[in-house]
Structure formats: structure tokens, C-alpha cells
Design a protein around this nucleic acid. Structure first.
Lengths: 349, 349
DNA sequence: AAAACTTAGCTAATCGATTAGCTGGGTTCG
DNA sequence: CGAACCCAGCTAATCGATTAGCTAAGTTTT
């Protein structure tokens, strides 16, 4: 492939002149400019971003590190992020930390050696000190997405997780449910913790408590949610409704319900935070609190590009989006549920 | 951030010695090696891949260019590809050509300036000449995924699209359906064309024809499939079964069925190629022919890494995977369908 | 003992861009 | 007319790695 020297030779000018034409960074006479552009075209010249990166210290790469790339929620974040970074002139590198803090560390080390201009991180560990611990240089521009970490000083873009849990729970309580269960995310991450806290707050405000035997963690995974939901629902006095902390786990819970021969919402009402998009033609349609995911992703990219341009964060910015309740047909009033009277030890299958 | 010169100075050796230790590329005495590693640790040194790329001509980046990143099929390809390239020591750049040939061209130009070591491409145009037309250099190592292009000389990894269409159609014909419709992909791409051809072949082998009024293209999009399915199903003599050429379009078709107040499979049977994973808990469960998507992606990455290591394709390799039929509950024998006798002009809603 | 060989570590050229500072010719000012 | 200034285009240093070839000291062979 042609280099800038080849173009310079073909056009009969210096490499500085070719660079000035390509970058429009200095005056070049019309005659010389035309010769350079003709040579660029004839030689099909494309500059090497490695060389440019080495000289300018900019890679034009943004890294997106998600917690679980098998989760359709994060797939949609990838889709939104690719479009957003492309609009700003960047390319997107994708990494999957798969909910493993040690893998996250190795990925972030890789991001540094790739000289990414910035990183959007869904943190899976408790700390991002490895982003900060650069003894002789400034940390890489970073935005935390969806989840936060206590010791971090990066910009953050999140949803109000407490509100997400609370709104879904209130919907179930408004339908008359009093014996609720929940399938949570991992409670050491802010999304898992916050949504449970929101549920607890909603119940507490009505003088209700959430029994610990009705709390299981599905670790934000479909298969884990399936397993814990089965065991929860197989209890003699099962709950009449479940709040599920993610859309992916909601699918696992649905699969457990189906496999136990239960009907939703006939036998069990289910509300969740988020769902899989595009499945409105399938039954039941989940009642859920939803993230404004595209807005969140665009905002994360905007904050990151701003940090890159300013050379790092000036002050920490925490942008919190509000979830919205979307009513489907996966919940019914408690009175409509035969087979398991609220106060009896039922024999549900 | 520390450079190799800083490490060399701290360890009291030359940069060549540091490089030899880091890369284990030449003998270095145990004493010097220990000094270098201590300095690397103390300075938190990470090599610059831009500099390394400039010298070695390798970026350790693989680009994945998909046709529609909003399509969950391609999201799963991203998930599988990220894991596969990471296992080979590469990082994954994601690009979305959004079914636009001109955007594909610009993306591939970008891939060249980023000096990607290779590219996996779901082609959306009719030609990949812009991958080949590098007047003075070898083309970038490329594997075409899912779709092929007539003039290309790259390795390809595909599914047997004809078999995919045929198997799903035969399932419907075996249930007694004779008036079939289809929602196709774009017919200028091999996946759209091949699946329709498979359907036509299955029907022809039973002396049946597919009426042109029952053929609509959903362009592999959920919303387009929704629209064309509605208009197809609103016809007075609607088909008793539909073959839908992608999982994403099948969701759009389901949504149209629901909105028209029809029941699946009570009023209309639906079979597809592929579906969204993880929705087995929702009804109806699609009967479909499935891609072995993870195997296909792993094979594409394996072929690409092999090309990179050999310095380009030696001979063209076309790996064709076979689809498999997975039976759900979205299809019923034709006799069970009240409300629309096969030969009458029905008044279906 | 001298010549030939071996080898650990070093020097410096190179990859392909960018850009600070230089240069020669032209213009303006005193 | 000479000094001072201007400016389009050029030269070459630089970014941070890698590595070919060099060097000096030690070992082996004649």
C-alpha cells in the first residue's frame, strides 16, 4: 500500500506538502494541491492511523466494555454506541468482561496498550483503581455506564435503579398482590442493589415486608434466573407475583413458569425492569420499567468525547435517567388467581 | 505513561534488552531480566501498539462489519466473534453498514486506514471490488459471513440457505398446508434469494406453486416485515401458513398477527429461519430452521486468522453449514384451522 | 600464542505519519 | 539601495516500538 512518500514522489512535492493537503492544515497553492490529490487518487493512498497515532497520540478508537455481551440489553447498547461514536468520527472496539472482575482488569490493560482515546465501561468489579493507577500519566477518559463504582471519579450515566424497582413493584401492589418474590441481579453491583432497594421501599411504604425465602439472585443471567425461579416457584406457598430485575432474567423466569405448567398471569404475575425489544407479538407481553437506552448511550458517548477533547474529566458528571413503566399483559389482579389462595399452603405444580 | 526508554533507563539496560525481555525474543541473563521486569512493574509500563504496529505492520485488530446491528442475529454474531478473536489474541472492531452499500465502502476504507489485520464482512453490496482494488498491495485478509458475493475471491462461511428454506417449507407442507405465503429478505442478497429458492423447490416437488401475491419482502427488518405481513394477511383469501426468512422478521410477523386479532397457529401457521434466542418461555414458540451460529462464527474467525498468518488467502475456502429444524408450537395441521376454509374468500379480520 | 569463533548486550536505522523551524525568493519600508 | 519582513514549500526531528548488525569479551581451535 502506498505511503505518503510515494504520493510525494509522484506529485513532485515534499511529504509535508502532502500532509498539508490531506489535512488542510496549511496553505498550499492550487497547482500543487491538484497534483497531490491526483497522486492520492492514482495511488489509492490511505494514511496509516498507526503512524498518525504515534505522532499525534490519538487513535480514534473508543472501547466499549460490557458486562455480558450475551445479554440483549448490552447488544442494544453496542448497536447504539456504534452509531454514536461513528457520528463523532471514532471506531468502536468491543470487549466482553462476562461479569468477571479479573477479565475486566486485563481488558482495561489492553485498552491502554491500544491507546484508545476513551472507554465506556459497565463496571463488574468493586473498584476501577486500575483505570486510575497510572503513575506518570493521566488516566484514560472514561464514562461508567449503567452501574457506578464507589471509588471512581469518572463521569457516569445511569438509570434511577431505585425508581425502576419501585415503579414495577408498585404496579404489582396496586393490583392487590401482597406476597411478592423477586429475582435480583448480583447485589454487589449498583443495578442489582438499587432495584432491590426500590422494591423494598415500595413494600415498606405499604407496611409490607419481602420474605427472604422469596428473594433469589439470578445474577442477570437467563439460565441462572430459570433455575432460581423454578426453585422459588416450587415452594408450597409460592408468591403471587414476581419482580424480575432484568429483561433477560425475565425470559428465564418465563421459561421456568412454562416448564412448571403455570400460566402467566393466570397463576403468577411478573413484572420486570426492561425486556427484549421486538417481542411484542409474543405472549405474554411483559409489564416492565424500561431504560431510555438510546438516550443513555448517546449521552455516554457525548460525555466521553467531551472528556477526550478536554483531556480528561474536569469535574465528575453523573447523568441519571428515569425509567418508564410500560404495561403489558403479564400481570393480573390477585383476585383472578385461582389455585393458590393467598393464606393457604397451596399444592401448586 | 512510561515508554520503553523510561524502562531501559530505570533498569540500566538498552531498549533492545527491554524489548527482548518483554517479547522473550532473545537470550537475556537472569540478572538483567529481573531488573527489567522490576522496572516494568514499578513504572506500570504498557507497550504502545501504535508503535509496534508501525514497525511490525500488525495491528492486532479484526474488524467485523455486519449488515444490521439492530438485528439480534448479528448481535449474537458479535458476541461469538468477540470471544473467538479474544481467544486468538485480537481485539474486535464493530461496524454497522445498515444494509447500505455506500456506507459499507466507507467502512472498508476506514478498516484499511486502521490497518486491521483482517475483516469479517456480511456483504450488503453486490461487489467487494473495493476490498480487492489495492493497486500496489495485497488485499486485506477477508472472510465473508452468511452471504456471498459473486465476484469475490475471499473465504466464505455460510449456511445452506436453500436447505433452510426448504426444510421449513416441507414442515408446513407435511402438515397439509397448500396455500403458503412468504416474507422474504432482500432478494439481491444470497440469504434472501437462497431461502426463497428453497421454498419454491420444496413446493415444486409437490406440484405446488407459490402465488406471487403471497410473496412479500420484509428486507430482513422487523418493522418492514410487520407492514408487509399485515397487508398480506388482510387479503380476502389469506394463506394458511407463512414461511418467514429471518427470526427478526418473524417477530414482526407475530406482531402483525396479534394486531390483526389472529391466533397463531389457530388462524395462521408460521415457520421461520432462525429466531431470537431465550424466548422459549413466550408463546407461541417458533418452529424454525436454525443456524449453528457459534460454530459458523468460530469457523470464520479461524479461517481469517489462518489467512492473516499465511499473508492472505491461498485458495478460496467455502464452508457451508447445514441448518437444523427446531419444532415449536407455531404451526398446526391445516385441518385444525376454522374461520378460513381453504377455497373460500374469507372475512378474516 | 595467535587466530577463529561465539554470544550477550548495545547502537541506531526504520516503520509512516506530523510539524517546528528553515530557506530562498519576493515585497515593503526607511 | 539595503534592511527588514513575509511566506510557500521544504528538511528533518520525532512519536515508541523492533530488530539487523555491531562490539567486546570470553572460549575454542590450530
Amino acid at each position: 500500500m502506498a505511503t505518503i512518500k510515494d504520493v510525494a514522489r509522484a506529485a513532485g512535492v515534499s511529504t509535508a506538502t502532502v500532509s498539508a493537503v490531506i489535512n488542510d492544515s496549511a496553505y498550499v497553492s492550487a497547482e500543487l494541491r491538484a497534483r497531490v490529490l491526483a497522486a492520492v487518487r492514482d495511488l489509492n493512498y490511505a494514511p496509516s492511523l498507526a503512524a498518525r497515532n504515534l505522532k499525534r497520540g490519538r487513535s480514534q478508537l473508543i472501547a466499549l466494555v460490557v458486562a455480558d455481551l450475551a445479554n440483549p440489553f448490552f447488544s442494544r447498547v453496542v448497536w447504539a454506541a456504534e452509531a454514536a461514536v461513528a457520528a463523532w468520527g471514532y471506531s468502536l472496539l468491543i470487549f466482553n468482561s462476562d461479569e468477571k472482575p479479573e477479565l475486566e482488569r486485563r481488558i482495561l490493560a489492553r485498552v491502554r496498550t491500544l491507546s484508545c482515546d476513551g472507554v465506556i465501561l459497565v463496571p463488574v468489579g468493586d473498584s476501577t483503581e486500575h483505570l486510575q493507577n497510572d503513575p506518570d500519566g493521566k488516566p484514560i477518559p472514561t464514562v461508567l455506564f449503567g452501574r457506578t463504582v464507589a471509588d471512581d471519579r469518572s463521569d457516569t450515566v445511569t438509570i434511577d435503579n431505585i425508581s425502576a424497582g419501585r415503579q414495577a413493584t408498585e404496579y404489582l401492589l396496586d393490583l392487590g398482590h401482597t406476597r411478592l418474590g423477586t429475582i435480583t441481579g448480583p447485589l454487589h453491583v449498583t443495578t442489582g442493589r438499587g432495584r432491590l432497594d426500590g422494591m423494598l421501599a415500595a413494600m415498606r411504604s405499604r407496611g409490607l415486608t419481602l420474605e427472604s425465602r422469596y428473594i433469589r439472585s439470578g445474577e442477570f443471567r437467563e439460565d441462572a434466573a430459570y433455575s432460581v425461579a423454578r426453585s422459588l416457584l416450587e415452594q408450597p406457598a409460592r408468591p403471587t407475583a414476581l419482580y424480575v430485575a432484568s429483561g433477560l432474567m425475565a425470559l428465564g423466569v418465563m421459561r421456568a413458569v412454562a416448564d412448571l405448567g403455570l400460566r402467566c398471569p393466570g397463576d403468577i404475575s411478573i413484572a420486570s425492569t426492561d425486556t427484549i425489544p421486538g417481542i411484542g407479538g409474543l405472549r405474554p407481553r411483559l409489564t416492565r420499567t424500561e431504560h431510555p437506552l438510546v438516550d443513555m448511550t448517546n449521552e455516554a458517548v457525548r460525555l466521553l468525547v467531551d472528556q477526550i477533547r478536554r483531556g480528561g474529566p474536569v469535574e465528575r458528571r453523573n447523568v441519571v435517567f428515569q425509567p418508564s413503566l410500560v404495561v403489558g399483559d403479564s400481570c393480573a389482579p390477585v383476585v383472578m388467581q385461582p389455585g393458590t389462595p393467598p393464606s393457604s399452603s397451596g399444592s401448586g405444580q
